[in-house]
């Protein structure tokens, strides 16, 4: 082998010992740069339109953002969300437990509830509650076919706000029932068995053993449902409940500033959903008590 041949061999085989002593280089990824440029351009375009198109009416947005009618509507929206979610959760828990009951009749009733409330559009249910007075002008307690003992005018006992709550809450209950049921079934059967063997009743077992452990399965979807509910409450406008969207409409019906006012409403909705997401992740952390990963971290 000649000297030149030997050099060629040395060149074809890198000196690994030498290379191993140096840190590796990071390969350039041109795709990332291109994506950045494209996204940046679109963002600039969007910002340009937002600023230059007078149709957005930013001064109008600013003027109405803290308008008392908007804030009142916002309060109603929050009330609707909170009460409907509580109602929905309670109904969901009861229906889920009924659905897992040993009693076939209770199972059937629960199944029918879910079937009905999931099977018809929420908008229709909402309108139904709004028009309940047409179907039942009075509500009372009496003997079927006989005299009424107590009787109220439906419109008095069922103000629109309550109709809205019923529409949202009863519908939510059906979805919540499925979420809760999945949570209850997610707790291993051995947990209930150990509790029964100690002498706890079915209800005590649910309360002390199953539900606390089901919560960490139930909570993430409940968080989603709450965020969804916050926006779904806007359906109450069809029966004339003065929520955020309804009051927004009332204002633009007079001043015809539809776009700026819809932006006002949207800003409030998005602020609230952002806050809810933050609350959600906090609660999830709290309920993951005893969770393997959580515990190991501590």
């Amino acid at each position: 082998m000649t000297v030149t041949e030997r050099t060629a061999v040395a060149e074809s085989r890198p000196d690994f010992a030498e290379l191993a002593s140096r840190p590796v280089l990071k390969r350039k990824r041109p795709g990332q740069l291109i994506a950045m440029v494209v996204v940046g351009l679109f963002a600039l375009m969007g910002a340009y339109i937002l600023v230059t198109n007078p149709g957005f009416g930013w001064p109008t947005v600013a003027k109405y953002l803290f308008d008392v009618r908007i804030l009142n509507g916002l309060l109603t929206t929050i009330e609707l969300t909170v009460i409907a979610m509580i109602l929905g959760f309670v109904i969901g828990l009861v229906v889920a437990v009924m659905r897992m009951s040993e009693n076939g009749l209770l199972r059937g009733v629960a199944g029918a509830y879910i079937w009905f409330f999931r099977g018809t559009p929420l908008l229709v249910q909402m309108l139904f509650w709004g028009f309940a007075a047409v179907l039942f002008p009075t509500i009372g307690i009496g003997i079927p076919g006989g005299p009424m003992l107590v009787e109220w005018n439906t419109n008095d006992v069922l103000p629109l706000f309550v109709a809205g709550i019923l529409g949202l809450g009863l519908n939510e209950g059906a979805y919540m029932a499925e979420i809760v049921r999945a949570g209850l079934m997610g707790v291993p059967a051995g947990q209930s068995e150990a509790s029964h063997a100690m002498g706890f009743s079915r209800m005590e077992t649910l309360r002390y053993v199953v539900i606390p452990q089901a919560m960490k399965i139930i909570l993430p979807p409940v968080g989603n449902e709450t965020i969804s509910m916050l926006k779904t409450t806007s359906l109450v406008i069809v029966i004339g409940v003065g929520d955020l969207l309804y009051n927004t409409q009332q204002i633009y019906a007079r001043n015809l500033q539809q776009i700026p006012l819809l932006i006002v409403a949207s800003l409030w909705y998005i602020l609230l959903t952002t806050l809810l997401s933050m609350v959600q992740s906090r609660i999830e952390k709290r309920y993951s008590r005893g969770n393997v990963l959580q515990v190991r971290k501590a």
Partner: peptide, 15 residues
């Protein structure tokens, strides 16, 4: 049952 203790193969401690 409350007077009879039971121990399971899979422990079944409340998690």
């Amino acid at each position: 049952r409350s007077r009879i203790g039971m121990v399971f193969q899979s422990f079944n401690l409340f998690g």
